[in-house]
Amino acid sequence: MNKIALIVGAGPGLGASLARTFQRAGYDVAVASRHPDALQGMCKETGARHFACDASDAASVQDLFTQVDAELGAPDLVVYNAGAYTRGPIAELDLDVVRSTLSVNGWGALVVAREAARRMIPRGSGTMLFTGASAGLKGFAESAPFAMGKFALRGLCQSLSRELAPKNVHVVHVVLDGMILQPERGHPYDNPDTTLHPEEIARTYLELSRQHNSAWTYEIELRPLVENF
């Protein structure tokens, strides 16, 4: 029986690479997005099941896990790849947009983690991987909402790691420090020499999911060789 991977926040970039990578590794894959119709091509390619989910809405997340349970089974691997971004001078920020950004980057991750933990703790195994950013390590000027959300995500992962490791549930915060290669977006996202390649990021996620519990990684930073740090 295949293991089950759930990717929350899937799209044509990293989400698609994760789906392909896990499918090739023998997982049955579920992908979730606010716009699941946009995932049809990826699902046709990988055989993944697609579900509608607003990660910032607790009821929507609960429904997602219930549907995945019914159609595939409880996930062995959950990736939280949802994210929202807004920036601007502090005096000019739209507070409704800020609230939405925080809800996706922080609150949504907590709700997904809760549903995953409810399934993994009784089983005594599982892996949760959370996509972070360099903004979770340092706050940049005019980027307060994004920094707040990603700092919250990092704090959540640190807390979860300490709570769940003794229960044999592996939690990893993956810091993506740099732009992801997306040729369709044009410059500077189309330069393969200065961007993170999504297939290589996905390969790292797979390797993290395979770590033995005697040598777990709890946080890892990925960046292209040209990125300053």
Rank of each mutant, 00 (worst) to 15 (best):
F146P: 02
G178R: 13
H197R: 10
D63N: 15
Q62I: 06
S17G: 07
C53F: 12
G132P: 06
M179S: 14
L14E: 03
V174G: 03
F22G: 04
A202T: 07
S161V: 01
A16C: 05
S33F: 10
T217E: 07
D76N: 10
Q158C: 00
L181D: 04
V98W: 15
M148R: 11
P166R: 03
G88L: 04
G186T: 06
M42K: 13
G132N: 09
H50L: 02
P36T: 04
H173V: 01
N2K: 14
A16Y: 10
A25L: 12
Y27P: 09
N168W: 06
I121G: 02
E92D: 11
A32R: 06
A144F: 09
E163P: 01
Q23T: 15
G88S: 08
K150W: 07
S56D: 03
G139S: 09
T217R: 06
A113W: 14
V104E: 05
A59L: 08
Q67S: 10
Y85S: 08
G132W: 14
L18G: 06
W107S: 05
F229N: 03
L164F: 00
V226G: 00
T66M: 10
A109N: 13
A113Q: 09
R34F: 02
C43K: 11
P188K: 10
R49L: 00
M128N: 04
R210Q: 12
S214G: 05
K3G: 04
M179T: 13
H50G: 03
R123H: 11
E207S: 08
E227S: 05
Y80S: 06
L222W: 14
V98D: 13
E207F: 05
A141E: 09
G41S: 14
L102P: 06
D96L: 10
V68L: 04
R34S: 05
D57A: 00
C157D: 01
A116K: 12
A82W: 14
A5K: 14
A48S: 09
V226I: 10
F22E: 08
G15S: 04
R49A: 00
P188A: 00
P12F: 12
V111Q: 14
N191H: 11
A109L: 07
S33N: 07
N168P: 00
